[in-house]
Structures are given as C-alpha cells and as structure tokens.
Write a protein that binds this DNA or RNA. Sequence first.
DNA 1: TCGGCGTTCTGGATCGATCTAGTAAAGACT
DNA 2: AGTCTTTACTAGATCGATCCAGAACGCCGA
Lengths: 359, 359
Amino acid sequence: MAERVTLLTLAKDLGVSRATVSNAYNRPDQLSAATRARILARAEELGFAGPDPRGASLRRGRTGSVGVLLDQGLSYAFSDPTAVLDLDGLATELQQDGLGLLLHSGTRSRTDAAVIAAAAVDAWVVRALPQDEPAVAAVCAQNRPVIVIDQPRTPGVPLVGVDDTCGAQLAVGHLLELGHRRIGVLAVPLRPDGYQGMVDTKREQFATYDVMRIRLAAVRGAVADAGLPADAVCVVECAINDVDPGALGTYQLLELDDRPTAVLAMSDQLALGALRAAAEMGASVPGDLSVVGFDDAPAASTSHPPLTTVAQPLGERGRVAGALVRAALAGEDVTEPELLPVSLVVRESTAPPRSAPSR
Amino acid sequence: MAERVTLLTLAKDLGVSRATVSNAYNRPDQLSAATRARILARAEELGFAGPDPRGASLRRGRTGSVGVLLDQGLSYAFSDPTAVLDLDGLATELQQDGLGLLLHSGTRSRTDAAVIAAAAVDAWVVRALPQDEPAVAAVCAQNRPVIVIDQPRTPGVPLVGVDDTCGAQLAVGHLLELGHRRIGVLAVPLRPDGYQGMVDTKREQFATYDVMRIRLAAVRGAVADAGLPADAVCVVECAINDVDPGALGTYQLLELDDRPTAVLAMSDQLALGALRAAAEMGASVPGDLSVVGFDDAPAASTSHPPLTTVAQPLGERGRVAGALVRAALAGEDVTEPELLPVSLVVRESTAPPRSAPSR
DNA sequence: TCGGCGTTCTGGATCGATCTAGTAAAGACT
DNA sequence: AGTCTTTACTAGATCGATCCAGAACGCCGA
C-alpha cells in the first residue's frame, strides 16, 4: 500500500524543498516554469492531488467555506422558496471568492452546539433562527464574522433584513383602505414549538422569532391608528410555514364568530394555503375573502387568483449578506446596512369586502 | 486587543498542560470533574470557544463535513424537487455523525476544479453530473471516499441510483399496452450545453449524462421488441429540467407531422410542463394526449390530472448515499449497492389514444 | 574585478491542536 | 511492607502545509 503522499514526499523525491513544491501550486511566479512543470508532472505520477487543505487551512487561517445556519431540518429550508432564494443569492456572491457553503441546521439540542463549534469555517451566516437558539450562541462565541439574515436581531451582529414594520403597515393599510374592518392574520411560527392556533397577547409578546413580533406590533399599531378596536385583528399561528398549515389556519380563522373579511398571511406559502382553503370552502377570492401575502415568492404571481403581496427583494437579500461576508473576510469593518425596502404588489386577491360601504 | 486564545494560552494561564485542556473538551473521562470545571470556567472568562477546528482537523485527519457536488448553480439544484429530497435524505443520515454538508457546484471551469481541490472535506458525494465534468475528476483525484448519486457512472466509484432501464421499460410498456403507437419523449439534458429541440441518434449516443443514454436505449429497445419501427419514438431534449422548458418541448413534439399520442417525460418537472402545454393548447389529458412522468415527485400527485409516473424512492436515495459515506468513513469497504427499484404509479394522466383500436 | 540586482530556491519557524507513552500519587490487595 | 491497579495528569512528537528571511547564482554596468 502506498504511503500517503505529502509535499515532503514529493520534495524529497525530486530533491527540492517543500517550499518550492508549495509554490508550484500557490505561487507560480516564484519559481521557474521548468521546475514547476517537473513538479506537477511527478505529482501526477505519484497521485498527489495538491496540497492537503487541512494543513493549508491551519497555516493560512482560512478554510474557504462559510457556514450557514438554518432553522429546522434542511428539508424544510429547501421547501421554503424564500430560503432557497436567499441561499442562491448567497452562493452566487460567495462563489466569486471560491467560497463554499457549509450547511448546518440548528435543532435546539446541546450536542448540536458542539457540532457547530467544531465546524471549520471562515464566517457564519445565520438565517431565520429564534433568539434563544443555542446554536446561535455557539456561532457567536467563535471569533469569526457573523451575519444574520432576518433574525435573530442581535445587537452588534450585522443584520440583513427588510423593513418588516413598513411591510406590515403597507399590507394592513391596503386592507383598511379597501374597507375591511375585521382582519385575520396568519402568522408563521412565533416560537419553534409546533403550536397551531389562536395567539394570545402573552405569546405574541414573548415570541422568540423577532420578525413576527415586529410585524404583529406594526399590524396592531396600524389598526389602532385607524381608530379601530384591538379585536379588529385576530391572529392564528401556523405550526410551520407551509401551504397545508396555512390552509388549516384559514379554517381556524373563518370558524370565528365574527368572521374576518380579509386574511393577512405572513408568508406567501401561508397565503397559498389560504387560497386553497377558500376554494375548498367555496368562498371566492377576492369576492368573499381578501388575501394578502408576504414575500412575493415566485408562486405568488402564478396562483389563482394572483396574490396581492408585500414584495421583499429576495435574491438581493442573500447577495447583500454574501457581500458583507466577503467584506468582513477582507478585513473591512462591516457596519449594519440599512434594512432593505419592501413594496406592496397589488394583484387580484384583494377587493373591498362584499357588505362594506364603499368608504 | 486581546491575543488569540489557544489551548496553550489557557494551559499556561491555569498551570496545566495543553493535553489536559484538550481532554477537558474531548475526553471528559480523562480528568477529574473539578479540573474540568475549572478549565471550562476560565475558558469562558477568556472568551475561548473550544479547540480550533483547523488544528483539530489537521491532527485528526477529519473535518466533519462532507462535500456535495451539484450540477449547475445551487439555485437550480434547489428548484429541482428530486435534488432537494436527495439532499434532505443525505443530511438526515449524515447528521447522525454530526457531519455537515459543504455544497459546491460544478460549473465546468478550470478554476473551479482548484476550488474543489482546496475544499477540506472527509468525503464527496457527487450528484447528477455529466461524465466529463472536470470537477468530478478533481474530486476523484483526492484520496477520499466518493459516492455518486445517479451519475456519472464511473467504474470503481460506488453508485447510488435507480434501475433506469426498468423504469423506462415500465413507462413505455404502459403506453404501448394502452395502444399508443407514436410516443414523444421529453428528455432532460443529454449534455450541459443548453440545447433545446429534436435529438438525433448521434447526440443520443454521445450523451454525457449517462442516465439519459441508458433510459433512451431502454425506450428504443422496448419499442423494437414490440415490433414497432424506430421512428415510433421521437425525442425532444429540454434545455433544463424545469416546467417551462417542458412545456416548450411539448409544443415542439406536438408540432410534428406525425403527432405523438403520448408523451413520456423523463422527469415530473417536464411532465408538469407537458400538462401545462396541453392545457394551453386546449388538448385534454389523457383524452387527447397521455402523459407519463418520471420520479414521483410530490407535485405528481397534486397536479391536474394527477400524473402517471415512474416512482423512484427519492428520500431513500439520499439516505443510502449517506449510509455509504458513513460506512466509508468508518473504514468499511463500501461495495456498490444494488440499484434501487422503481415502480409504475398509474394515476389519471394516461389512457388509450382516442383513435386507437382497443387492442 | 567588484558591488548591486533580480531570479530561483532553501531551511527553519510556525499555525493549533491530538496522540502516545509514560510518570507520580493514591488506594487496594496480599 | 511490598506489589499491583487505578486515576490524574504531562512532555514531546506529530499532522501537512505556508511564510519569511536569506543564500546561491548568474548577469549587468562601472
């Protein structure tokens, strides 16, 4: 059995120094073309595939990969179109520096934090995790750059996110303007405990997913500013951000005594669930029920009817995060960027309530 | 500015040896609980987040991550439901050993191969790449375990795949039995060059995506066995495996003089495109056109009409690959496993051709 | 002939940990 | 008391590369 071939093996074999062999791979200008060719040729013969990345990364202090910490399992992440777009933007940006993505998911177990601590990466990107996730603490404890996408919003950690307050206001404002006076909110999880159903104020206040806390506060604020009572909005939390729970949540909203005339879904996935539930119940959208989504995911424009939704610059978000990572790795001080802007895209899923006065 | 804290810093500070500090993290049974507590407490004070993974991975020879080489950009990979399911199965399996996934995509550039060579991983999983992809060569040149999912089929490299020949035969057999005598095939790419349109025999023979070559050969074989002429099947290649190109390809098939009565799509994504194209052309499925898919992706059962398709055990595939990786890393000899079985799921997108004799 | 200069190559220090073999002290057994 | 075990810890070698300061060499101009 052949010994493991290293730079030293090769150097001895050829009668040159390790440094020269190393240079053949990393600094072609530091040696003559002839020696370089000789080295590479012999390397090929001996089955040497280039310097071992482990040694190199120890010496250099760089590994060439960026850790990405995602919520839940990876399958969930892949099934969420917004996550996919974030990852894609991130990957394209990082590819410019030849950086790969090391995917890990935070699953609230202790052992997991140890795995995170043992991951050799140059920087971390954390996406859409709750505040109290131990893996996030593990990531921040390492002395590497950390960029957060969406949440958790942690002081001192650069955040790439959108203006959620504004987004929620736009959506509510649109519905109020249409004349809706009773609004059902379909929330993505407030805490990662799989709860599905009505949300009370206590749960709302102690939500560990910051984004939902912020958005719900904005919704309540807008409703109060319009002079409506607090119970003009009722919130149903969906266990996970997917179409099925969205449909289920919609049933739960429409079973209420004082039935809402509009549903504000905190993601397009949930909104698609709302559309499906409405269709199954024989309620027409937007005639019997208005539906507003959030994200402007690709599916929003092709649904029936096409969704009115709050558009986030999705690919952009990942790219900005990637740019921050690159800057941080280049030694620049990264300061927290502005929140990205959102806008309301009005399509065909919203209309005035059937019985409403035309305002 | 604080110095970088290492095991040595901590050891000196506490008056113990490096080894003891290391053991505090990796082998709690090798020292007294008291010393361990003292070490961990002081580590916390000094902001030491545990042994640096780079040093550890050099010494141990393990990095705790598995490289995954995907076709095209990552966004494509994420948009393909079968890829997502593979990744998910892989991730769940590897998570048991605390292994993370390092994603890279092969993009046929030279520099890219260098990036691959510089990635510190314990093993590679290659999924659905063409034979001649340079990144695959780079991966195999390293002396680490390599597992291939689907393709390229390389002698000596363990492959996890399905019985494509059987799958193609099942699909064609089903259509022939229904009485179809003219079958259009919608192929996923044969080469990664973005070509969309009719495929001639030369292109078919020199396909660099092995799976398509195998399936097309099986289709032709089955048709010949049924005593039909070779031109009973015509093949249109779609530029990428997605719904839109599938619809486009269907238009191209139905424009032919001798219009096929059935479409055999080599993926469910393409089949969904065929359904859409048929709907847009006002052709009813399965009345005017039968459509068979391949994969049994989640969307196959919820489409209109639900797709008849060749079912692959998708999550299973990733899991098996993950299990092979684990076995290989555990030092076991991994031998190539059997191809996973496929089966035909008959739903509502196939029927006898309108004008056909009932056989 | 000699100093100065650029090119090409080398030796040794270094990155930060883990492993192996082994020591010192305390307790157990005869 | 003497020997054997067990526990708690340590010293030094080692993993495989990269970086840095400088050596050897040939070449040029004065």
